[in-house]
Design a protein around this nucleic acid. Structure first.
Length: 141
DNA sequence: AGAGTGACTGCAG
DNA sequence: ACTGCAGCCACTC
């Protein structure tokens, strides 16, 4: 096979797969932040990458992109935009009431609980993505 | 190679 | 609570 098969491309595809796997693992009725998803996918600090990957998702991909929100449980899009309305609608269909551009704290707390659901002691699921990648601490005060 | 941009985030004012 | 700024990462021009 000679050809153009760079390990770099493979790495990129692998990141996308990890991100999508985490998003798909978010239970209906709960939401998670971009940063949280990135961290769980083994890509701490790549919240923006999550947004890009979700934006590339084709319609009907089955990936619950609407369950991914900004930090603090805020809508990913500005209120009034078509996408914002769509996300609000999709969340409402799952019982999540969006108040303005934010969701109740308890819904967001569900994401924190997810941590235990996914990587908890009783998790041990074979469908869980792998952390891989070395965690790189953010240099912040 | 340098500058600009964005489905991000946290701290300051 | 809101806006602005800085840091960061990946991509495009």
């Amino acid at each position: 096979m000679g050809g153009t098969h760079d390990a770099d491309d493979d790495e990129v595809a692998r990141r996308k797969a990890s991100i999508i796997a985490v998003v798909r693992a978010i239970p209906a009725g709960t939401v998670a932040s971009y940063g949280w998803v990135a961290a769980e996918a083994g890509l701490p600090g790549r919240a923006r990458l999550v947004g890009r990957v979700l934006g590339e998702l084709p319609a009907g991909s089955g990936v619950p992109w609407h369950r991914v929100m900004r930090a603090g449980g805020r809508l990913a899009f500005p209120v009034g935009s078509v996408d914002a309305a769509r996300q609000t609608r999709a969340l409402a269909a799952e019982g999540v009431r969006v108040h303005g551009d934010r969701v109740p704290a308890d819904v967001l707390a569900g994401a924190a609980t997810l941590d235990r659901l996914l990587w908890g002691p009783t998790a041990a699921s074979t469908t869980t993505p792998k952390p891989a990648d070395t965690a790189r601490p953010r240099r912040r005060t």
